[in-house]
Simulated scan of single mutants.
Amino acid sequence: MKKILVTGANGQLGSELSVLSSKYPEYNWIFADRTQITLDNLEVLKLQLNEIKPDIILNCGAYTAVDKAETETELAFTINESSVKLIAEFASENRAKLIHISTDYVFDGTSSIALNEEEKTNPINVYGASKRAGEIACLEKNPDAIIVRTSWVYSKFGNNFVKTMQRLMQERESLNVVNDQIGSPTYAADLAQAMLDILKAPNWIPGIYNYSNEGEISWHEFALDIKEFGGYNCNVSGIPSSAYPTPAKRPEFSLLDKKKIKTIYNLDIPNYKESLKKIFI
């Protein structure tokens, strides 16, 4: 029985993989939180990987505090680059399959058309730079790895935009949400299923892939959909990013082109509204 190691087990994606795991009893699943897989201590991480000896690694663990990364630069790079390098090296040496999760924040947001996997990267914040460094390290140490870039992840688990909006729309009469950052949300359950579809596919084609739900919207439009599905009475107004300054800059446009993953792995990707509805069931 092949052993699957899931890092970041308590995060949104790790939690969704845990839900799905019961449908795949042919695997021995190991869901590792930050005590079992220590991404910020490389010496300990190496020992842990050698002890677990996984056949497959789904690397969902990451430093994702986008604004805090501006001041916690070293920690962000340790987790998002150095640990990825070590995991990729382990996978290569032990012939373990590796799927590593990355982000749309590797782009600068200046495009006006959906970004494919060959598009030039140019991160505009520390988080994006650390994730891009992780992509490079991953493929250098393990050219057989698969990297999946995703965007605007939400789930019933963890902290995310949808849950924040649900809470605020019940607490407040009005909200302002930025309307000039464009992309597409990703329901973590859909991404988790896509990872398993890749794993079960007859061919393993390494490289970088994009995955998000279908659709092109702003955060403001996303908030309006949450308001509609939740039946909230809160007034939701759109504002420019300049009116809501944050320590880290965000890409203005980071819509991902999914043609490659749909073609190679024959994936049927739901529209974001279909998936968002599931949060309210």
Score class of each variant (00 low, 15 high):
110 T>D: 07
212 S>F: 00
147 I>C: 04
276 L>G: 09
109 G>A: 04
52 I>W: 11
71 T>K: 13
84 V>L: 11
78 T>A: 09
147 I>K: 05
145 A>I: 03
13 L>F: 03
121 T>M: 00
279 I>G: 01
20 L>D: 05
246 T>D: 11
154 Y>V: 08
61 G>S: 09
154 Y>G: 13
177 V>Y: 13
187 Y>Q: 07
55 D>H: 12
219 W>K: 11
152 W>S: 07
155 S>N: 13
114 A>Y: 03
50 N>G: 15
114 A>G: 07
258 K>D: 05
144 D>F: 02
25 P>I: 04
248 A>R: 09
153 V>K: 06
99 I>H: 07
90 F>C: 08
175 L>A: 14
142 N>F: 07
231 G>F: 11
84 V>P: 01
252 E>V: 03
15 S>P: 05
50 N>H: 15
120 K>D: 01
271 N>E: 11
225 D>S: 14
21 S>T: 08
156 K>M: 09
62 A>S: 15
233 N>H: 08
45 L>G: 06
13 L>W: 08
154 Y>D: 12
127 Y>R: 01
273 K>G: 05
194 A>C: 13
61 G>A: 12
253 F>R: 09
238 G>D: 10
130 S>R: 06
67 D>G: 07
266 N>D: 14
273 K>A: 07
72 E>G: 02
148 V>Q: 07
276 L>K: 05
139 L>C: 02
98 L>A: 03
272 Y>A: 03
89 E>K: 15
36 Q>W: 05
19 V>T: 14
87 I>T: 09
120 K>G: 00
187 Y>W: 14
92 S>F: 12
188 A>G: 11
249 K>H: 10
126 V>A: 00
159 N>K: 14
193 Q>W: 08
261 I>P: 05
225 D>I: 03
85 K>N: 05
271 N>D: 14
18 S>F: 11
255 L>C: 11
173 E>K: 15
158 G>T: 13
199 L>Q: 09
83 S>K: 08
73 T>V: 13
138 C>F: 04
26 E>R: 13
187 Y>H: 14
258 K>N: 14
91 A>I: 04
7 T>C: 06
179 N>V: 07
44 V>D: 14
112 S>H: 06
196 L>S: 06
79 I>Y: 07
264 I>T: 11
100 H>N: 14
